[in-house]
């Protein structure tokens, strides 16, 4: 991936995380790590977002919320599971209210482990996500032409 054709906007949702990963996601947006220099902006509106950063596992109560946010996002979209909780439910795996990682609710494109995930890992994951976003966009384009 030599260049990106657009600046991706992200949306962040806290599944059932302990906050550790959430504050790291926010830290990635602030001056020390500053992902804004790549044009990445945090938005609150799923319809504006290209990348869905989700922290924490899925439980009975939030599974519908997560699916709702995912469905409201417009194609092409990429889901990044931030932190080991979002990947596999991590330390909370044995809890009675936890269903599992984010992939139990929606398809995940990039798994970024770490407890808590480091901002560098988040940036790496987003950059990887950008490549996937680009590919998905191309595929969509080709389908449109074919139709």
């Amino acid at each position: 991936m030599s260049y990106v054709s657009k600046s991706p906007w992200i949306i962040h949702y806290d599944g059932s995380s302990c906050n550790g990963c959430d504050i790291e996601v926010l830290a990635a947006l602030t001056p020390l790590y500053d992902v804004e220099r790549f044009g990445i902006i945090n938005t609150g509106n799923p319809k504006h977002a290209d990348i869905f950063l989700i922290t924490g596992g899925i439980n009975e109560r939030n599974i519908s919320v997560v699916q709702e946010i995912y469905n409201q996002m417009i194609e092409p979209k990429v889901v990044i599971a931030c932190g080991v909780c979002a990947c596999t439910a991590g330390i909370f795996k044995d809890c009675y209210n936890i269903i599992g990682g984010v992939d139990q609710a929606i398809p995940v494109d990039v798994y970024a482990p770490g407890c808590a995930i480091r901002p560098e890992a988040i940036i790496d994951a987003v950059v990887e996500g950008l490549g996937i976003l680009e590919e998905k966009a191309k595929k969509l384009e080709a389908e449109k032409k074919g139709a």
């Binding site: 059932s16 995380s17 596992g57 439980n59 939030n62 909370f92 809890c95 009675y96 209210n97």
Partner: peptide, 14 residues
């Protein structure tokens, strides 16, 4: 409330 309920207090059993 209840969106982040995990059930941590019960983990003392395991």
């Amino acid at each position: 409330i209840g969106f982040i309920h995990r059930g941590l207090e019960k983990l003392v059993e395991t």
